[in-house]
């Protein structure tokens, strides 16, 4: 039990610190980083856009239902729904989608590289796979994830607005007015902090799982599965921790 949790945790932090030190010393090529940003952002944008649109619509419908039940009036719904979206759902859903798409890819690629002994080959040439592979993806992940979350939020606003105006009898003016009044910088800070934190976690854990892959096709499958699962659980736990910490300062 000790072995199963402490050792991986230690390894993960190892990868993290190594990547950070490489980045701090500017040893990664900017070209690599941009390429990874493009990969992350481009490949996940469509899916994120699709999912968050639906979420925006659903959330506002549900909030309307609940608010009417609890308070009897629903003029605050846009604001409250947006707050929930900004603080919780946008960061989590975006991060989970990135986990599936990019996290699994990273783990699978590294596992395949391990299988074909590429990683050892690099080591013999004096190159460390973490420097080459993980470091650019780390910073790209943070950058891309934050941008994607912001964009996702914007999309949910549009989706929610469309729902509110066409199905819930809101008018555009009051909708945006209540948004402006109730959304505070605090919500954005929370959102960005979460996105960034999740974004740091994803490449690290995925890389760890890929590098620890066992041999053969099953090993690759197992590594990819572990990456997706490990990321999901960690994201949700970190989400709770951040929310809890921030709520103390609210």
């Amino acid at each position: 039990m000790f072995h199963k949790i402490i050792n991986p945790l230690f390894e993960n932090f190892n990868i993290l610190f190594r990547s950070l030190s490489v980045l701090a010393k500017f040893q990664t090529s900017a070209k690599d980083i941009w390429k990874q940003c493009y990969e992350f952002g481009n490949r996940t944008f469509g899916i994120v856009a699709l999912c968050v649109t639906f979420m925006g619509v659903i959330l506002i419908t549900e909030y309307s239902f609940h608010m009417k039940l609890v308070i009897g009036n629903d003029s605050m719904i846009p604001a409250f729904a947006m707050i929930m979206l900004a603080r919780e759902l946008a960061p989590i859903v975006t991060a989970l989608l990135i986990t599936s798409k990019m996290g699994a890819s990273i783990a699978a690629e590294l596992a395949a590289m391990k299988n074909s002994e590429q990683i050892d080959a690099y080591r013999l040439l004096g190159l460390n796979i973490v420097d080459l592979y993980v470091a650019p993806r780390l910073i790209a992940s943070v950058f891309a994830n934050v941008c994607l979350t912001v964009v996702a939020l914007a999309i949910t606003v549009i989706g929610a607005w469309a729902s509110a105006v066409y199905f819930l009898n809101f008018s555009t003016g009051p909708f945006f007015h209540s948004l402006v009044v109730f959304l505070s910088p605090f919500d954005f800070i929370l959102m960005v902090t979460k996105s960034a934190s999740f974004a740091i976690v994803i490449p690290i854990i995925s890389a760890y799982c890929g590098l620890e892959a066992k041999h053969g096709a099953e090993g690759v499958g197992e590594a990819t599965t572990n990456a997706v699962v490990g990321n999901s659980i960690t994201i949700i736990i970190i989400d709770f921790i951040i929310t809890f910490l921030f709520s103390k300062f609210y």
Binding site: I47, C51, L96, K101, A104, A108, A112, A217, G221, T224
Partner: peptide, 18 residues
């Protein structure tokens, strides 16, 4: 091959969520 297995897991995760 082995790479395909990783691809399948990725596809499953993404498609499931969507």
């Amino acid at each position: 091959g082995t790479f395909g297995v990783g691809e399948s897991v990725r596809k499953t995760a993404v498609q499931s969520m969507v």
